[in-house]
Design a protein around this nucleic acid. Structure first.
Lengths: 146, 146
DNA sequence: TGAAATTAGTTGCATAAACAACTATATGCC
DNA sequence: GGCATATAGTTGTTTATGCAACTAATTTCA
């Protein structure tokens, strides 16, 4: 009868997303407080498009760690809100390029400022080298399971 | 025009749940492979009940970091699957105590073994002191936003 | 060339989460 | 006692996720 309960440091509490959920909720709350009508999931897609516009849906899957149906529906909703549009690729008709509208471009600065402020708040009292170490460990966990 | 993009170490990638999502998916996959018909969210509720049976829904909210409607519906589904039952508290009629059935008690050992194995796999190459540091940082993040 | 396999994206279905509004019970306090 | 307030839980609505099955376009290769 194994009553081990995650002897290697309570993995459950390490990685159950307690912190990421808290950050996500706070970020969503701060968006709402600024009258920004987007979800953090939608924002995470826009975030990658601001770095590089007109990515394929598959590329957005890779960069946001979501599966294809999730991206399909996020893009559906972003398109309804006139924040992106699907443009069929001329080279490969299977591919939809997802491109930002002007309205989405206008959201960039405000939402990134809010995200940075939220992160500052979340990481108060955490040293840079600690952040680096957390990043490295979480990356290793991700790679271990990939 | 703030093009900072999380200067304090790409908080987005630190905490966006990439690792916790990967662990959750793997755990779910391993449950399915063992013909266990529960979701990881349901399992996370059972996990706390195995530690201490007959908690109130509110207490389950606190321990699993979920809000009340989420717990209501998780308990609804667990009750449909005959894994828990709601017992009205004699002292306070507002309170439902959520108690394990025998069927749920039988799931404990197998699912905990699978969870431990999944965690071993996820944490390969990660030292104990690194796990401790990650726990501490994520706890600090959580406390900062609470 | 043309059939098989691969890749990109969509749809259906079940579960889960966030938020607001709601009911019911209990507590505080005058 | 009785009214105001707080607490426990439920319901409705919208959004998001996971999985499987599906269509359409492209690539592989005999």
């Amino acid at each position: 009868m194994p009553h081990i309960y995650f002897k290697r440091g309570e993995l459950y509490s390490v990685i159950n997303g307690m912190a990421s959920t808290a950050v996500a909720r706070r970020l969503q709350k701060n968006f709402r407080a600024a009258a920004l009508e987007i979800t953090i999931e939608q924002w995470s897609v826009l975030y990658h498009l601001w770095k590089e516009d007109c990515l394929s849906q598959q590329e957005l899957c890779n960069r946001t760690f979501r599966d294809k149906p999730s991206i399909t529906r996020l893009i559906d909703n972003l398109e309804k809100q006139k924040l992106v549009k699907r443009v069929s690729s001329a080279q490969d008709k299977r591919i939809n390029l997802v491109c930002l509208t002007d309205a989405a471009k206008e959201l960039q600065d405000t939402t990134l400022r809010i995200a940075n402020e939220t992160m500052e708040e979340a990481l108060q009292g955490v040293r840079k080298d600690e952040i680096e170490m957390v990043k490295n460990v979480l990356q290793k966990v991700y790679d271990n399971l990939k």
